[in-house]
Design a binder for these strands. Structure first.
Lengths: 324, 324
DNA sequence: GGGATTGTTGCTCACATGAGCAAATACCGG
DNA sequence: CCGGTATTTGCTCATGTGAGCAACAATCCC
């Protein structure tokens, strides 16, 4: 086909002239009719066709702007209960886009009804960002539980804990931290740790949370797990070569949502992927051009019921659906 | 000041939510009111404030789209009778933008009333482009006269003549060519040439044209005058060092519209800058990021009454006016 | 605390606009 | 050239929307 909608060449040109007068000079359709020597109905039709042909582009340029039509399409084409897609209009850096996404996640959390009594969270740059964007008093008391290990081996030490504490504090609630590394070197150590009353209690609390909030990392050397010293670059390379696209709550999965390395998975402390899959409310916050693959894996395999993401990632997901 | 218009933070957010529903989901203000729990008047006001704060960006994406508000501001801030500014929305290359500008110039010529009996034109890439965009039968008979020398010394030979011939042919009119180089090496040769009946006649015709159509080149090594072998790169460098910003009908001027090298000017064949300045209808077609300086010189010094240009060049001109 | 000032809200009314329909026009195959 | 079909045009009418205004609320300044 040649064009979207059929229209004679002179009509197309007229529709552009009309659109200029209507949208840029905000003249009334009557006035435009006088200028272009057309009836006002013809002008109305020309404007309609200009819109139908996509000549009129309307963008909402604001850090808090969302893309509702994309959200709807995402909900329809995936099984998501809800999708939040932030606009990338006028954004200048990846960081800005991620910050917008974090803000949107904070907004979503704030407006969540019923308010979850316990909220299980993972940790990482994204969630930390979310915690910062939450407003003081965003909820009247929430018990925030860490769902995967994250006492770091280096300077990042604070952030995992501080994310949980900040979210809880701002909700006038309490934080329950999981005092454990993300991954143990020996299975026995991990099992011993899990047997400990304190740790077991936190894990049980995490398993019974009413809602989960987590992000995901792509499988590469910049992963927070490498950064924090739990995994080496070589290990990541190995995982990638075995099909890993990224990690969710510290566990590496492939495009089909399956655990890539069961042995490593056994040594990883925290909630299991399947528990996430079964939970009724799981909110994934994933943004950035690197994360299209892991976002796809998370959404396609039902690891979240709500996705908070950016326009570009959302479009990548839709793109893929189209070709199925 | 902190913001464009004052608005509480929550109202700003509401205005964005309302805008999303209004512009992306095209809901009615009533319906939005129900969703956001507001009266429909409040919704109307929120939308108005979103527009006022520039959160709503409406673009007309089409090769023939113009920017009327910029045109108006240009007319107001300069002494131009008319300004045609093509939109650069959705443009991917400089060449595309120049083509759009040429198209707009062709459109302007076509709609020009009264139709000029004689039209003086210069030559160059831009005007050639204009000639190609004109429609067969754009005017019922126009005598097209070349107003500056341009019989080239190399392969470009054809274009100067073909531009004139094409424009004339498509108007079912006649072309009068100026059979002379752009610049002579010796003043005497030039004077001898001008004394020739044939040449003198063309020049006289050119001086009495009812309208002029020309472009301008910036002063650099890529100039058509260098390309055609009339000037050397060294000569251009010299002109630049003496303040030249570009050429109009083969004559180099500085930012104040003055001839940079009177001696060179004397050896240049064609209409004088001052004759252009005095003419009642002179249409300059200037587009491209390189040409902001020469565009400024042309407009500021009254060398054209009508400017056809692109959005970026127009904005550069307005920018400058603001700082005066 | 009272009065003035400023900003906000709900509303009426006039105008602008899109849906739907009938008349007119263009198009096309015989 | 003609009858039929598709498309376009002009219009009525219902609905959507912005301007303007009065009532109300918030704020500020003595």
């Amino acid at each position: 086909m040649d064009r979207d909608s059929d229209m004679s060449d002179t009509d197309e040109l007229l529709s552009i002239r009309a659109a200029e007068l209507y949208y840029e000079e905000n003249q009334t359709q009557d006035e435009i009719g006088v200028i272009l020597r057309l009836t006002r109905w013809k002008v109305g039709r020309l404007l309609a066709s200009a819109r139908a042909n996509g000549f009129i582009r309307i963008e909402i340029v604001h850090p808090r702007a969302r893309r509702l039509p994309i959200e709807r399409r995402l909900r329809e084409s995936t099984g998501l209960t809800d999708a939040i897609v932030v606009s990338s209009a006028g954004v200048s850096s990846e960081a800005e886009l991620q910050s917008r996404t974090a803000q949107a996640a904070a907004d979503f959390l704030t407006s969540l009804r019923p308010i979850p009594r316990t909220l299980g969270i993972s940790w990482g740059r994204t969630l930390h960002d979310v915690s910062l964007h939450l407003k003081q008093g965003w909820a009247p008391g929430v018990n925030v539980v860490q769902i995967n290990g994250g006492v770091s081996l280096n300077q990042r030490t604070g952030t995992a804990a501080s994310t949980a504490v900040t979210i809880a504090h701002k909700a006038d609630g309490s934080a329950t931290l999981l005092p454990s590394p993300a991954v143990f070197e020996r299975l026995e150590t991990k099992q011993a740790m899990e047997a400990d009353r304190a740790v077991a209690g936190v894990l049980a609390l995490g398993r019974n949370a009413q809602a989960y909030l987590f992000s995901a990392g792509q499988a590469d050397a910049n992963s927070a797990l490498v950064d924090s010293g739990f995994l080496t670059v070589e290990q990541i390379d190995d995982l990638v070569s075995r099909g890993a696209v990224g990690d969710v709550v510290g566990r590496y999965i492939d495009a089909n949502g399956r655990i890539v390395d069961p042995e490593l998975n056994e040594r990883t402390v925290g909630i299991q992927i399947d528990q996430l899959r079964r939970a009724p409310l799981t909110i994934a916050v994933i943004s950035g051009n690197d994360k299209h693959a892991i976002a796809r894996a998370v959404v396609r395999n039902g690891l979240c019921t709500v996705l908070v993401t950016d326009e570009d990632t959302a479009n990548a997901l839709l793109q893929e659906k189209d070709t199925l």
